[in-house]
Simulated scan of single mutants.
Amino acid sequence: MEPVLYDIKDAARYLGVAPSTLRYWEREGLVRAGRNRGNDYRQYALHDLIDASEIAFYRRLGVPVRELAGYRTLSARDLDDALDRTARDVEQRIAELEAMRARLARQRALNARAEELEAAGMRPGAPAIARLDAIDYADPSLWPLLVDEPWRFAVLVDA
């Protein structure tokens, strides 16, 4: 009985990835595919799909392809280390996204305040200055504020 072989389109559909992803994984040595003798198209046997499903599993967890190099020879400890590194990367991205969410909230609040000021009659050509302080450009502690909180510095006067 001939083994069932799957073309790249079916294999990709079963794995939930794009055919280009399977080709990439093959170039990186993560998966293997046989070739049809008649047309040289990729063909995947069931055991190839099982191997590829493990790669797909770790990729869905966010483990980078470079961490899965030599997958067949990786120990459980190697895989756990890769998961640890991926978890740290995820935590860093979460922190960056939370900081971005806070900046978005601050900007939205500023936009709302600008609308209130505009509704109260304030126009860009006639600003109200509540306080004017000189900025010491030689002070390096101010530069992060100018970048991270530009709304705090509405008027710059070069005197």
Rank of each mutant, 00 (worst) to 15 (best):
Val65Ile: 15
Gly38Tyr: 04
Leu97Lys: 14
Leu83Ala: 07
Ala87Cys: 03
Ala82Gly: 00
Arg37Lys: 08
Tyr24Glu: 03
Arg27Trp: 06
Asp40Gly: 11
Arg113Thr: 06
Gly16Met: 15
Trp151Cys: 00
Leu132Asn: 12
Gly125Ala: 06
Ile8Tyr: 06
Tyr44Phe: 15
Asp81Tyr: 00
Ala134Tyr: 14
Val63His: 01
Pro124Lys: 08
Ile8Val: 13
Glu2Ala: 12
Ala119Ser: 09
Asp148Gln: 13
Asp40Phe: 05
Asn36Thr: 10
Val157Cys: 08
Leu97Ala: 14
Ala12Phe: 01
Arg27Ile: 03
Ala114Val: 05
Ala45Cys: 07
Arg23Ala: 01
Gln107Pro: 00
Gln107Gly: 05
Gly34Phe: 04
Pro144Tyr: 02
Glu2Ser: 15
Ala138Ile: 00
Arg66Asn: 09
Asp7Ile: 00
Leu142Asn: 11
Ser141Gln: 15
Ile135Gly: 01
Arg88Asp: 06
Ala76Asn: 07
Trp25Ile: 04
Val4Arg: 12
Asn36Asp: 15
Arg23Leu: 03
Thr73Asn: 09
Gln107Trp: 02
Asp7Gln: 09
Ala11Cys: 05
Ser53His: 02
Val31His: 02
Arg27Cys: 09
Ala159Leu: 10
Tyr44Asp: 00
Asp80Phe: 12
Ala128Ser: 13
Arg66Glu: 11
Met100Val: 08
Leu132Val: 02
Glu91Met: 10
Arg13Tyr: 09
Asp81Trp: 11
Leu146Pro: 09
Arg131Ile: 07
Pro64Arg: 05
Pro124Ser: 14
Ala105Arg: 15
Leu49Asn: 02
Arg35Asp: 09
Arg152Asn: 09
Met122Lys: 11
Pro19Gly: 12
Glu149Trp: 03
Asp80Tyr: 13
Asp139Ala: 05
Leu156Trp: 07
Glu26Met: 03
Glu91Tyr: 07
Gly34Asn: 12
Arg123Met: 07
Val4Pro: 01
Tyr41Arg: 08
Arg152Phe: 05
Ala114Glu: 05
Gly62Lys: 02
Arg27Asp: 13
Pro3Cys: 07
Ala102Glu: 15
Arg113Asn: 07
Asp51Cys: 05
Leu97Asn: 06
Leu104Phe: 05
Glu28His: 03
Arg93Lys: 14
Glu96Ala: 10
Leu83Cys: 09
Ala69Thr: 13
Leu79Phe: 06
Ala114Met: 07
Glu2Val: 04
Gly29His: 03
Tyr41Ile: 03
Pro150Lys: 04
Asp84Ser: 03
Leu156Ala: 06
